[in-house]
Nucleic acid binder design. Structure first.
Lengths: 93, 93
DNA sequence: TAAAGTAGTTTATAAAATAAACCTATTTAT
DNA sequence: ATAAATAGGTTTATTTTATAAACTACTTTA
């Protein structure tokens, strides 16, 4: 009946990040921070977790001499997100 | 864009309980425990939180000489659940 | 050159989820 | 009659998360 919800995705901030990335395919740290209205610290930690899970990939570079962190959803991340959504629907129908 | 998700409902077990109660209007502890496949301890704690939030009401009585805990969703609980679902949809569309 | 801003990371704290242990009473087997 | 198992939970302890606060490193502006 109620299948377990992927704990990595069942988190407000991580879910919002994945939701953005699934539409955009690529986004930088500042963009994600603004769109999710999160603090930098929290976002940094949660992006780390998503990367360690293989749900996103993170590229670090420089733009205009400043650090630039770019995030991209992976195929694994897309499937995990889709599975999570299907699953979650059972809870809210 | 992403409104905050009611932390009381954004929990796997509490959400499953509310999901059941919104359909049934009333259910006892054992039924909820079975349907949600949770441990008694966890369920006990989470029902307490839902009650303290005013989302459910809990009646304690006896059936066949044994303790019987019956839960019912409140009007407040119904609105909170509906608001949560509407909100959550923004994350998963 | 000092102050303020950018782009983050690390560390510490608070809150949540979960499991393990416990409690009280009842039923069943010996 | 009594020991063991079961029912129906609660309480306490431990682990995991989420979040905020503090910090780092560098750049730009006054």
């Amino acid at each position: 009946m109620f299948k377990p919800l992927d704990p990595l995705l069942h988190s407000q901030l991580r879910l919002a990040v994945m939701s953005l990335l699934i539409g955009l395919e690529e986004a930088d740290f500042t963009f994600l921070k603004e769109k999710t209205a999160s603090t930098a610290g929290n976002l940094s930690v949660q992006l780390d977790k998503l990367e360690k899970a293989g749900y996103i990939s993170i590229q670090k570079s420089f733009r205009d001499k400043r650090p630039l962190t770019t995030c991209k959803i992976t195929r694994k991340g897309i499937s995990a997100f889709e599975a999570y959504v299907e699953n979650l629907k059972k809870y809210i129908e």
